[in-house]
């Protein structure tokens, strides 16, 4: 077990002047979020509720994914004033979403001083071929993935953190489970291949050989892996942790429920004690109504956000 951040850190700290935006600083930031819950918030008041409940970070956005689904239309980066308001309201890290491939939205988010940029399939993609070149930024990026090849392509573009996509705004954990199991099982398969087989594996995964080799050696991604898209209950969060997520994003699940403050705190506790059913049972009591949720098998192809990204 060694720190995944060290192997790939390009920089040397022996120079006298400080270096910002290094791989170690970007990936290291995600390491600090591990074991935690990142919550979608749309107002400074919600951000404070999330912070008080023990969130490790908030995702500032104009509409939670459930409302993006309901409203339809093009979903874009949030208003800078709204992001500023949330940055000023809390002391924990603030993340915000850019559209896939929308370089300028990402540049604006960096200029606003957000701590992490989520190049997100929940917003309407701006480029159907290319994702943003994430090495061009000081601000680190998190990206979604449904399988290992997709995760490694994002890391090759400079992503410093990966989240399994799930299906955002549904309150249904089934796709999050599918994607996490897929990524973990593909990692497991790599670890038993011999060197010769890794070249073919890289070809099949459509990912750089060096990254495939690194995953085979580490038995894990070289960056932190969270789960997202459909977590609505403390049990959902604990399930994703047991399946291998190092932390969870909760979007619509908190502020579309009956008692957001209580549910948020309960999900934080269940994420830490994901392997202790007695504690999860205790925190699951009296939370009020969960968000209603959508059955993913009735979602038309065009409304599946997980299909966005290439």
């Amino acid at each position: 077990m060694s720190s995944p951040s060290t192997a790939t850190a390009a920089s040397s700290a022996s120079s006298a002047s400080p270096e910002t935006g290094t791989a170690r600083v970007k990936r290291g930031m995600a390491e600090q979020l591990k074991g935690g819950v990142i919550m979608d918030v749309v107002t400074p008041e919600e951000a404070k509720i999330a912070e008080d409940a023990g969130a490790v970070a908030v995702m500032a956005l104009e509409r939670v994914p459930a409302d993006i689904r309901k409203d339809g239309g093009v979903a874009r980066m949030s208003d800078p004033d709204m992001i500023d308001g949330i940055i000023n309201a809390v002391s924990i890290p603030v993340m915000a979403k850019s559209r896939i491939g929308h370089l300028v939205e990402a540049q604006i988010l960096q200029a606003l001083g957000v701590d992490y940029i989520d190049e997100s399939e929940v917003l309407t993609p701006a480029d159907e071929t290319n994702h943003s070149d994430k090495f061009a930024f000081t601000t680190p990026f998190v990206c979604g993935a449904t399988n290992l090849g997709e995760a490694l392509r994002r890391i090759a573009e400079g992503a410093a953190m990966i989240r399994s996509k799930g299906e955002a705004g549904t309150g249904n954990v089934v796709e999050a489970v599918r994607h996490m199991r897929q990524i973990k099982s593909e990692i497991g398969k790599l670890t038993v291949l011999d060197r010769n087989e890794l070249y073919a594996a890289a070809k099949e995964l459509r990912a750089p050989y060096e990254l495939v080799k690194e995953v085979a050696e580490l038995g894990k991604l070289p960056v932190v892996l969270f789960s997202a898209g459909g977590v609505a209950t403390p049990a959902d969060a604990a399930l994703m942790r047991q399946l291998g997520a190092e932390g969870v994003f909760v979007g619509s699940g908190i502020f579309k429920s009956g008692d957001p403050a209580k549910r948020a705190a309960a999900i934080v506790k269940a994420t830490t004690f994901h392997d202790d059913p007695k504690i999860i049972a205790d925190v699951s009591r009296g939370l009020g109504e969960a968000m209603v949720g959508i059955n993913c098998d009735t979602l038309p192809e065009g409304e599946r956000y997980a299909n966005r990204g290439w």
Binding site: E19, V25, M29, Q110, T139, P140
Partner: peptide, 27 residues
């Protein structure tokens, strides 16, 4: 500062012999 100001720098530390430690400062 915030994440954009997070940095790495060499730091000499009393009680740690040899070259400076690699200081990784994150928020």
């Amino acid at each position: 500062g915030r994440q954009n100001e997070s940095f790495e720098a060499a730091v000499a530390m009393t009680g740690v012999d040899g070259p400076p430690v690699e200081g990784v400062f994150i928020r």
